[in-house]
Design a protein around this nucleic acid. Structure first.
Length: 307
DNA sequence: AGCCAGGTTTAAT
DNA sequence: ATTAAACATGGC
């Protein structure tokens, strides 16, 4: 099999293990795999399927990503662009730190999570469907259900006796009956939302990729018209799938819990308090929110005290 | 053991 | 207006 290898050198700091640990946080992994320092995922570009493996040689300040693509079906430029997007290689992380370090308390989190970058999905569609599956349900459950969805409707490729699945395309989900998806364990409502959205994408009633350049309010206005898509879903999608870190899912349960812990409050704080805390981070408020959630979610797995 | 975990819509009071 | 119900795994 033809294998392509190349390197990507992020501007430091870049902590690949902090990013990868997001994917191995739960016992069940889905689409994105991270084990023993190696990230794996199948990418579908122009109807071709390839497995990419990424590992980091060198630590945070000298991190260099080794990319392996197998089989090599088309040159490296498309793959390289996609990986740079997914792992925030070109993020202005120093710009974020410059602002965030003014906050003494937050500086401790940055110290512990130095070089962490919020990963993004390859497509906006994937982030939107992920958001729907994660509405009002434990993340571990959402991952388990999503895995079933992926194994049923994603395309697969078998490499070294291991089968990998792509995230299902809008086309493949648009032709499914909601009742079929419900059988996998998702609620009937969510199943309907997923099929409806997929149909809209296929019929080009919405152009999710083009919306990346819209202002937030317009994206919010247009997408919340769709059944099953509320403010949280759109904000979450903008962060995860569009790299819009000026978006802040302020009513997010996980974020509210994290902020509550951060402020040493007894009662769970409300959306308003979340907005207040992140106000000073300006255009990086979503970035900061990701750091805080990460710090809280991983404190029990980490030797270091993150919060 | 039992509690609780990244919302949003719809249909019932 | 307000409320209830809907998908189920796993850490603590």
């Amino acid at each position: 099999m033809r294998i392509m290898k190349f390197f990507i050198k992020p501007k430091p700091p870049f902590n690949f293990d902090l990013v990868g640990s997001l994917y191995s946080r739960f016992p069940i992994q889905c689409v994105d795999y991270y084990n023993n320092g190696v990230y794996e995922r199948v990418l579908e570009i122009k109807d071709k399927i390839q497995l990419i493996k990424i590992s980091s040689v060198g630590l945070v300040e000298k991190s260099k990503l080794l990319i392996e693509v197998l089989p090599d079906k088309f040159g490296k430029s498309l793959i390289k662009e996609k990986i740079k997007w997914m792992f925030g290689i070109d993020d202005n992380i120093k710009g974020f730190y410059k602002i965030a370090l003014k906050d003494k308390k937050f500086a401790q989190i940055i110290k512990n999570l130095y070089g962490l970058r919020p990963p993004k999905t390859p497509t906006v569609f994937e982030a939107l469907i992920i958001a729907i599956t994660e509405q009002q349900i434990a993340l571990s459950v959402a991952v388990a259900l999503r895995r079933r969805l992926v194994e049923k409707y994603g395309k697969s490729i078998k490499i070294n006796s291991k089968t990998y699945y792509t995230f299902p395309s809008p086309e493949s989900l648009a032709r499914v009956k909601p009742e079929e998806i419900k059988k996998l364990g998702l609620s009937l409502k969510k199943s309907e939302y997923i099929v409806d959205i997929s149909k809209k994408v296929v019929k080009q009633e919405i152009y999710l990729e083009k919306m990346k350049k819209w202002d937030k309010e317009r994206i919010l206005d247009v997408l919340t018209q769709i059944r099953g898509v509320g403010p949280w879903t759109v904000e979450y999608m903008m962060c995860r799938g569009m790299g819009r870190y000026d978006a802040l899912p302020a009513n997010d349960m996980g974020l509210r819990i994290s902020v509550t812990a951060y402020l040493n409050k007894k009662e769970r704080v409300a959306e308003q308090e979340v907005r207040k805390l992140f106000k000073s981070f300006g255009e990086y408020r979503g970035y900061a929110a990701f750091y805080l959630i990460y710090a809280y979610a991983f404190k029990r797995y980490s030797q270091e005290k993150l919060l």
